[in-house]
Design a binder for these strands. Structure first.
Lengths: 170, 170
DNA sequence: GACGATGTAGAGGGTTCGTTCTACATGGGC
DNA sequence: GCCCATGTAGAACGAACCCTCTACATCGTC
């Protein structure tokens, strides 16, 4: 991926995260990307491609920010994981999971659905590995999804509930 | 609420649930509502009002289908609750929670956000009451959100995980 | 210094969309 | 029998949107 492509994807991700997938026009996306319309369309030939590129970019950033370098101790890793998710929500995604939002905005797109599935799959397996919960990927993912969805309304209380549930998985 | 208004709202809810909030045009919504464009706009003067009416309708139906008449035994109520949510997903909402989808499609709308909050609030308090988990509304809501989000990918495994987590709340 | 590759700036086309408006049908109450 | 309220059918309008295209700037290379 070239440098300019990376910068465009980063700008698009910001715009979609802030305003959702329905609202921003391509003109708005161009401003967010910081390039001309011609260049934008050169690298992402349609609005759908812009959505996909933004989500790919977000996927990489999410893995880095939430799942890299968790504590070695498994209980500490579980708590840190929930804190990291909350921190991600606070700074990046105050409206919930961007991948679910994308699929909701275009339920017909199989490309988006595949991307959502890949994202959740990779998050679940890496999270289970880091917390010593291999074999309980689904329960752990359920907690992460629940935290992501309920954080906007319940904040730190949701984090505490998620930690408690993750601990109970043993 | 008049009879025709009820029928319109029911049709709109179906259309939004099936195709999301971004895709369907007002012409499509009119077909789903089964009335003329003039009548549709008489009762719901803008597309945003159509979304709100559809969600109000869904809120009432969700409470009826998922939370009415749960078993008296608390452990049985917890399991039945998760089964009911899964059944709701299977028959009504294969793409996740419609309220979250609405907010995601229009993050700027405070009316939608308020409606989401009211919906979740009422679901949480009624669910906690029925399952003997008063005081743990947030943890229970987190499980319900997690189940709703992960059911499309993991189906009955997600239900089993949700039951396990709800049982652990004790 | 010419040139080709790559960028910006932004106007324009063709389409779709939300909303309004006109014209007409129907049916119960005086 | 007339009328008004309420419904259908769908044309029309203005705005917004996605995408293309033209015209021009910049910069590293020969």
């Amino acid at each position: 991926m070239s440098d300019i492509q990376e910068r465009i994807a980063a700008g698009l991700e910001q715009a979609f995260a802030r305003h959702g997938f329905a609202e921003p026009s391509v003109d708005t996306l161009r401003d967010a990307a910081g390039v001309s319309l011609r260049t934008l369309y050169k690298y992402m030939p349609s609005r759908s491609d812009m959505m996909l590129a933004a989500l790919e970019h977000r996927h990489r950033r999410y893995l880095n920010r939430v799942l890299d370098d968790l504590p070695v101790d498994q209980q500490a890793a579980r708590e840190a994981l929930m804190d990291r998710v909350a921190d991600w929500m606070r700074t990046e995604a105050s409206h919930g999971c961007l991948f679910h939002a994308a699929v909701a905005s275009e339920p017909g797109s199989t490309a988006l659905r595949d991307l959502l599935e890949r994202h959740k799959q990779e998050v679940a397996s890496r999270a289970a590995l880091a917390t010593g919960l291999a074999g309980q990927e689904i329960a752990l993912l359920l907690i992460l999804e629940g935290l992501t969805q309920s954080w906007p309304l319940h904040g730190k209380n949701a984090v505490a509930a998620a930690k408690g549930l993750a601990t109970s998985l043993a």
